[in-house]
Design a protein around this nucleic acid. Structure first.
Length: 274
DNA sequence: TACATATGATCAT
DNA sequence: TGATCCTATGTAA
């Protein structure tokens, strides 16, 4: 379930359960054996999220200068998943590429696109390719605004491009465009400053809510007849994502879907006029 | 047992 | 644009 909110939440939870401890690190699956060996026994100092990327920082091994300490970089991709266990952990599955064992908590990671050690310059190069993170304090939305105004691609495709801004995935892009009343096929550079301001604000609010709750709930509880977000049934948490052919929750128009930016997007033709 | 599916991204063409 | 990679799960056969 990895959009930006999930990654930031993971960073927060793993900081709380593992940071400050010397960890046992290994790779039961065998594809990260060497990297794991370099980290084994070292103190995890912090875990940071940027968009959909995770960075794990470690105390320097004996004799090594701190600024050459390698950083563990993880990107979950579409399938990556962490499992966290308190106390006794079950045996790792066949696909567990990384296992971190702390004093009380063990995490297993499987299915990730990227599990690698990077140097600080390598991390900088990676970050340099990314747009602002709506979940980071001090994010500069004007950078995303400028990137959009340079694009001829549709806003729906641009929101998935992590060079524009980071953290949005296929669910949030469909949902925030619905909430903003923007048609996904609107050319990105035609989005007005006022529309962008609303869109950025929605993105920040939605990602923050998702980070806190661990789930994507974009519907206004009143639209599905309940009192609070936490009471929204799992089948009614979104307005348009994967709801093609169903009636819009606001106006009952049939939701449509099509390919956009290489993925499927859905929208309400009435609430999101072209 | 097989297949379809999934909230991602990269690389080749 | 299409192929490819990564894993787990649910449903169909």
């Amino acid at each position: 379930m990895p959009e930006g909110h999930t990654i930031h939440r993971l960073a927060r939870l793993q900081r709380a359960s593992l940071a400050g401890q010397a960890l046992s690190v290994d790779s039961p699956q065998g594809r990260f054996v060497q990297g794991a060996a370099e980290l084994d026994g070292r103190v995890l100092t912090t875990v940071q999220a940027y968009g959909k990327h995770l960075f794990y920082r470690w105390g320097a091994p004996r004799g090594a200068p701190a600024d050459e300490t390698e950083v563990l970089h993880v990107h979950l991709g579409l399938f990556g998943r962490f499992r966290s266990f308190t106390g006794e952990a079950p045996p790792p599955t066949a696909g567990t590429r990384l296992r971190l064992v702390g004093d009380d908590v063990t995490v297993h990671l499987a299915g990730a696109t990227t599990v690698e050690l990077v140097t600080p310059p390598g991390e900088e190069a990676l970050r340099a390719r990314l747009g602002p993170d709506p979940l980071s304090r001090g994010a500069r939305p004007e950078e995303a605004r400028a990137a959009l105004s340079r694009r001829r691609s549709p806003i729906g495709a641009a929101l998935l491009d992590q060079r524009v801004l980071v953290g949005i995935g296929n669910v949030y892009r469909a949902e925030v465009l619905f909430l903003a009343g923007l048609h996904p096929d609107r050319p990105a550079r035609d989005v007005t400053d006022a529309e962008f301001a609303v869109l950025w604000d929605l993105i920040v609010r939605q990602l923050r809510a998702g980070e806190r709750s661990g789930r994507i709930v974009t519907v206004d509880p009143a639209d599905v007849g309940v009192r609070s977000r936490s009471r929204v049934p799992s089948s009614e948490r979104v307005y348009v994502y994967r709801r093609a052919g169903l009636p819009c929750r606001r106006c009952a128009t049939t939701i449509t879907s099509w390919a956009s930016g290489g993925r499927t997007i859905s929208a309400c033709p009435t609430c999101q006029p072209r």
